[in-house]
């Protein structure tokens, strides 16, 4: 017993030390970027910023907010996220509910039909040619439609409806003359609020973060989402040819890094603000998923 007490203490010591290390590894880079974004151009370019703003300034944010292409693409992303999430959630629920009904004869056939698409996909080129063939390129539909339905999310919602809504509810409702549609709207939807919240968040986060479809389907810069403008500023380190004032600022080598720090903060702030809510539901979503697995 004495021995195991000793080894327990050593183990706990290691655990606490590694937790502190993990904490530092995640917090320090974040602190560095936030601190840099509030520092002066001079302090940033001379590499004097560590974890606290040096010579406090808001210049990076001022430049960012003055650029029309940054504000426009931000608003486009808000639109893509809102409209895209609405379409996705609609399609997902319209599939999940009928497939959760045990009395639907073609249920398992349709399930197989959807599951196949998780394992076999046309890949990058055929999908591109399809969207081009449908003449969707250079329209918002190219962003909103192709990836709208995630079979994974559909299965998540279906599992929830199957396991947490008792079938007896439908029996008594249908005796009272309730139609399938009516039952969906007034019983299933209200009872599925937790899982709907989860898939709304799943879709919204992936919509907000997506850039690939926009990159291959859009030429018209006025339709660009925020992530594409971010890519040109953060990764390609140029203002692109979005707007004159932005490329001008990015060309001033001095201002470039400062603007990059501010952009990182601006782009992550909305998600971080929603984070407490998001986190709660995401964990719930994974729990439902693992119930199935």
């Amino acid at each position: 017993m004495v021995n195991s007490g000793m080894s327990d203490r050593i183990l706990m010591f290691f655990i606490y030390v590694s937790m502190c290390l993990i904490f530092a590894m995640i917090a320090l880079p974040v602190l560095f970027i936030v601190a840099s974004s509030f520092s002066s151009v001079d302090a940033v370019t001379s590499g004097r910023v560590y974890f606290w703003p040096v010579e406090f300034s808001l210049q990076g944010y001022e430049v960012a907010l003055q650029s029309p292409s940054i504000t426009r693409s931000f608003l486009m992303s808000v639109f893509y996220t809102a409209a895209g999430t609405a379409i996705s959630v609609g399609l997902t629920l319209l599939a999940a509910y009928p497939l959760s009904r045990r009395d639907l004869g073609i249920r398992s056939a349709v399930m197989v039909f959807f599951t196949v698409t998780m394992f076999i996909s046309g890949g990058m080129i055929p999908t591109y040619l399809l969207v081009r063939g449908l003449r969707l390129t250079d329209s918002v539909w190219a962003i909103l439609l192709p990836g709208a339905l995630s079979v994974w999310n559909m299965i998540l919602a279906r599992t929830y409806m199957l396991t947490s809504i008792p079938p007896e509810l439908f029996e008594s409702a249908s005796i009272d003359g309730c139609s399938d549609w009516r039952y969906f709207v007034s019983v299933v939807l209200p009872l599925s609020v937790p899982i709907i919240a989860v898939i709304v968040l799943y879709y919204a986060v992936s919509r907000w973060n997506a850039f690939f479809d926009a990159m291959i389907y859009l030429n018209d810069r006025s339709l660009y989402p925020f992530q594409l403008v971010l890519r040109s500023i953060l990764v390609q380190s140029s203002g692109g040819d979005f707007d004159l004032s932005l490329s001008e600022q990015m060309n001033k080598a001095a201002l470039k890094n400062l603007l990059q720090y501010s952009m990182i903060v601006i782009s992550t702030a909305p998600i971080l603000a929603l984070y407490p809510v998001v986190q709660k539901y995401f964990i719930k979503g994974i729990m439902v998923g693992s119930l199935k697995g």
Binding site: G90, L91, T92, L94, A95, Y97, P98, L99, V110, F113, F114, T117, I120, S121, G122, G123, I125, P126, T127, L129, L130, L145, P146, G147, A148, L149, M154, D180, W181, F184
Partner: peptide, 19 residues
């Protein structure tokens, strides 16, 4: 109800599979 999601999968998943 299934009509919409199924046609979406036919157009955006199964046609590219043929591709």
């Amino acid at each position: 109800m299934l009509l919409l999601p199924v046609s979406h999968a036919v157009i955006f998943k199964y046609i590219p599979m043929y591709g």
